[in-house]
């Protein structure tokens, strides 16, 4: 069974994501701040990571950077789910090596789930640099 690491500080959002992804048949692990996330990653190795940016202790940008620099972790697909929407922030995340950037409030939960499934079952989807036009299900 494929394992997904969800890094998100809002509890109710974690809840929803977890429920939906578990019922899609995946094992879920969660972290609510950057430090915990890195700890969990050290133990290794999820098949995919959903990463929020504004998280306590170590922010999502740094987590992403660390993941991409680590030889064991760098090939893990990372999708940013954040409500930060400025062009600079999106560019920064994508430049740091995120596989996609999704503004949470603009995508139904189902869409998020669909992206995860597609990635894990069917392989890499088209690189997504325009969040509002990223292919959905």
């Amino acid at each position: 069974m494929k394992r997904i690491l969800i890094v998100e500080d809002e509890v109710f959002l974690v809840q929803v994501l977890q429920d939906n992804l578990a019922s899609a048949g995946y094992e879920i692990d969660t972290a609510q701040d950057g430090e915990t996330a890195l700890e969990k990653l050290r133990v290794c190795c999820p098949d995919l990571m959903l990463l929020d940016l504004l998280i306590p202790k170590i922010d999502g940008f740094h987590v992403l950077e660390t993941v991409r620099k680590d030889t064991r972790l760098k090939s893990i697909p990372v999708y940013i789910i954040s409500n930060l929407s400025s062009d600079t922030e999106i560019k920064r995340a994508l430049d740091l090596g995120a596989d996609g950037y999704y503004i949470k409030s603009e995508h139904p939960i189902k869409e998020i789930v669909g992206i995860v499934i597609q990635r894990l079952e069917k392989g890499k989807i088209e690189e997504c640099r325009e969040p509002r036009t990223c292919p959905g299900v």
């Binding site: 109710f12 959002l13 929803v16 930060l84 949470k104 139904p108 939960i109």
Partner: peptide, 14 residues
């Protein structure tokens, strides 16, 4: 962008 949207997202997905 962040503080307002977060609860809105929560509601949306729930």
């Amino acid at each position: 962008s962040h503080q307002l949207r977060t609860p809105l997202t929560g509601t949306k997905w729930l």
